[in-house]
């Protein structure tokens, strides 16, 4: 499960206090939920809080049945490792590792043995259509390929929730479409995909669309 209750984040910038997210409450159902809004509307802040990258000023976040808003840094990292996968706009692969090693990295952190790690990583690369690129470093892959490696990495520990922040933002339309297809394909069943985007065409593929403006949830669009 993924649920936010009264989620608020305030920053102090010099003398001024900025409310980046204001009293956000939502219980994310399984499937794809898109979060849209103009820049500065609080999309990134919301994702930071839902994923436990940051702690809220007020409110609670429940991820996989656990309150994470009052956990320490390392506890939140452990919860993320087991329950959440991430796909960022700029791929964020580890540059010194091969595609296979990047996909296997979360498995390494989880203490999975090397043989099993490599077997699972290969299988995941196959699922994203990159079996032949396993030994390539990120700088030897195209943007679309890198994003597919990132998706394979996000799926490595079969997380309950996938977070994607503008996953197609840096890709051309063909590569973007492929990446989006892959993401949606893996958001089936009980898994939740939170898709932050400002691209309404991307948002149109989601079952629900949350509209943010000035840090507030102003509309929930249920497309059934």
């Amino acid at each position: 499960m993924l649920r936010a209750e009264g989620l608020t984040k305030r920053y102090r910038q010099g003398e001024v206090e900025i409310t980046a997210l204001d009293d956000f409450s939502y219980d994310f159902p399984p499937g794809v939920t898109a979060v849209v809004g103009p820049s500065g509307s609080g999309k990134t802040t919301l994702l930071n809080l839902l994923a436990g990258f940051d702690r809220p000023t007020a409110g609670t976040v429940e991820l996989a049945g656990m309150r994470i808003d009052d956990l320490g840094e390392d506890e939140r990292a452990s919860v993320r490792l087991k329950n959440a996968g991430f796909v960022f706009q700029s791929w964020n692969l580890l540059p010194t590792l091969t595609a296979l090693e990047n996909v296997a990295f979360p498995l390494l952190l989880a203490g999975v043995a090397r043989a099993e790690r490599n077997r699972r990583a290969r299988e995941l690369l196959e699922r994203v259509g990159l079996a032949g690129r396993a030994d390539h470093r990120p700088n030897q892959l195209s943007g679309g390929e890198q994003q597919r490696v990132a998706i394979a990495r996000a799926l490595a520990l079969e997380p309950a929730v996938l977070f994607a922040d503008e996953p197609t933002g840096n890709l051309d339309s063909a590569a973007g479409a492929k990446v989006l297809d892959l993401l949606l394909e893996h958001a089936a069943g009980e898994r939740r995909l939170v898709l932050v985007t400002h691209d309404l065409q991307v948002a149109a593929r989601a079952a629900r669309v949350l509209h943010l403006r000035d840090g507030r949830l102003v509309q929930v669009e249920d497309r059934g």
Partner: peptide
């Protein structure tokens, strides 16, 4: 810095 951020985002503990 960014690499360490990615590792931490994925779930690496500070100790790692």
């Amino acid at each position: 810095t960014r690499e360490f951020g990615v590792m931490r985002a994925i779930g690496a503990r500070r100790r790692f």
